[in-house]
């Protein structure tokens, strides 16, 4: 187990360098005239242009730029955004709110999809099963660019149940609506997978044994069947959590939440290379860690899985 974790961590180092390299190359190739993009409509004088080019090494070849960047990164300096802010500071500002949003969303998603999935599996073919099937299909078919503004309009503005926008220090309550919007996508797939997995396990021989032992129906389901059924669901939860942590670009933009997605969206539109790479690098690490945790969770759920 220990050796497995070490090996995975070493793999993560390689993946990290590979990923940042690709992202760096992509933003580099995408750069047209970042200085003009930064200045907007205003003209830039030649001397300003020279000074800025010098500061950001914009005239150097790609590999040299990447080298400068990596040198900074490895010494703990994430660099400076083209707007002059320290990228490290921006991360510290953006992360907490995205993190909270992601955690609320994933908790909502897991609680709703697992309970609803189990119930529709027990009464498969019944009214509840059919209604959830219909709802999940509708949710799956609805892009978040439609869902988020609709939720904001209905619950945030017309009914006024929740604040329509959130700030950096938003309370859990203010983050509930955007989190729910984010959760819906995860719910749809997680619910279907839970249901299928539980249906499959209900037919297993060990369920018959558990019933022959005179256990209550509730115990058979929630103790014996559920743990066996959760294994495929955990994979999905991991992927979803990684996605949520990376910030929901659309949702954060619509609810005006200054999180990671919000910043990345802005950085891309202003061609702010260092900022994009800075955020994405951290995202890569988070994805890798979440995936490692998921793999370790498998072993915790299913003793037959042992990592060497």
């Amino acid at each position: 187990m220990f050796r497995y974790i070490v090996r995975r961590l070493l793999q993560m180092v390689l993946t990290f360098f590979g990923a940042t390299f690709v992202v760096f190359a992509l933003t580099f190739a995408n750069q047209d005239d970042p200085l003009q993009a930064l200045a907007g409509e205003r003209p830039i004088t030649e001397s300003q242009r020279l000074a800025l080019t010098e500061r950001y090494h914009l005239d150097e070849p790609f590999l040299t730029q990447y080298w400068y960047y990596m040198k900074g990164l490895l010494t703990g300096d994430l660099g400076t955004s083209l707007t002059g802010q320290k990228i490290g500071d921006m991360l510290v500002n953006a992360w907490p709110v995205t993190m909270r949003l992601a955690l609320i969303a994933i908790v909502l998603a897991v609680v709703i999809s697992v309970t609803a999935g189990v119930y529709s599996a027990i009464r498969r073919g019944g009214a509840f099963d059919n209604i959830t099937l219909f709802l999940t299909l509708v949710l799956l078919a609805m892009p978040i660019v439609v869902l988020a503004p609709m939720a904001q309009l209905l619950f945030g503005i017309q009914l006024g149940w929740f604040p329509p926008t959130a700030t950096r220090d938003a309370s859990l309550y203010a983050l509930f609506l955007p989190a729910l919007v984010l959760a819906t996508l995860a719910i749809a797939t997680e619910l279907r997978v839970t249901r299928t997995s539980v249906v499959e396990n209900l037919r297993a021989d060990y369920v018959r044994t558990a019933r022959a032992k005179g256990l209550t129906g509730r115990r058979v389901i929630w103790v014996h069947v559920l743990r066996n059924s959760l294994i495929p669901v955990v994979t999905l939860i991991g992927v979803d959590l990684g996605g949520l942590m990376s910030g929901a670009i659309v949702t954060e933009k619509i609810f005006n939440i200054p999180g990671v997605g919000f910043n990345i969206a802005r950085a891309i539109s202003t061609e702010d290379g260092p900022l994009v790479v800075g955020f994405v690098s951290i995202l890569v690490i988070i994805f890798l860690v979440v995936n490692l945790v998921v793999d370790l969770l498998y072993a915790a759920l299913d003793p037959r899985i042992r990592y060497e």
Binding site: T209, G214, N228, D302
Partner: peptide
Amino acid sequence: RKVRANQIAMIFQDALSALNPV
């Protein structure tokens, strides 16, 4: 439910699948 295991118990053919693996 209480009769099962208390008064009448059962063993099954394939113990590997009849026992909960986790």
